[in-house]
Amino acid sequence: YDQVFAVFDAFRTEMAGIDRVIINAGMGKGQPLGTGYFYANRQTAETNFVAALAQTEAAMEIFRAQNSGHLVMISSISAMRGMKKNLTTYAATKAGVAMLAEGLQVELQNSPIKVTTIFPGFIRSEINEKVKNTPFLVDTETGCKALVKAIEKEPKNASVPGWPWGPLGFAMRHLPLKMVGKMM
């Protein structure tokens, strides 16, 4: 983790400041809890949350010193509610990332430092290339263009792509867990 701080500081020095940091630490190696795969769940948690925390700390040190910047936290649509089986640890870590961002949004609401949380739905990438029956999957190019468009608007929160994930995210947050479990 020390390297994260050194690399961020080197970028800041080389570029005389940093305008935006996008934190996208993520892997989906998790397994159902209690099935003997603690190592996989721990690795997912360390990558998705602890590594994101280190990057957030490093970015915020720079942004606080500059009194400016845009922090973008890539969460997941799965962070909206608890998920089952292989998604349990992944979703929990992405919910943690979203709460880090929300805490900063509350703290920095009257500051020139902006914080955005992105909740991507299924965008084709190496993390999901072997997953079958992925609902509403968009190709990499479409997903990346939607991510860039959302990030450049600097909202507090955005589901990407907006359709169908905006309405589905709302539904996931408000429907009974039994229904959410059938959706995902």
Rank of each mutant, 00 (worst) to 15 (best):
F5A: 15
F5W: 01
V7F: 00
F11I: 11
R12L: 00
G17W: 04
I18W: 01
V21S: 08
I22W: 00
I23G: 01
M27F: 02
Q31R: 15
G34F: 06
Y37P: 01
A40S: 11
R42K: 15
Q43N: 13
T44N: 09
A45M: 13
A45W: 09
T47D: 08
V50E: 11
V50A: 09
A51F: 03
L53T: 09
T56M: 08
A59N: 07
E61N: 15
E61Y: 07
F63V: 02
N67P: 00
S68I: 00
H70C: 07
M73P: 00
A79I: 02
M80Y: 05
M80P: 00
K85M: 10
N86W: 09
L87M: 14
L87Y: 13
T88N: 12
T89R: 05
A91P: 05
A92S: 12
T93W: 05
G96T: 12
V97Y: 04
M99Y: 06
V106Y: 13
E107L: 08
L108I: 12
S111W: 11
I113G: 08
K114E: 05
T116C: 06
I118P: 00
I118V: 13
I123C: 03
N128H: 11
K130G: 09
K132Q: 13
K132G: 06
N133S: 13
L137A: 11
D139A: 11
D139Q: 14
C144Q: 08
A146M: 11
A146G: 10
E152Q: 14
K156P: 00
N157K: 13
A158K: 02
S159Y: 14
P161R: 02
P161D: 09
G162A: 15
P164S: 08
W165Q: 03
P167Y: 04
F170P: 00
M172G: 01
L175N: 04
V180G: 04
M184K: 01
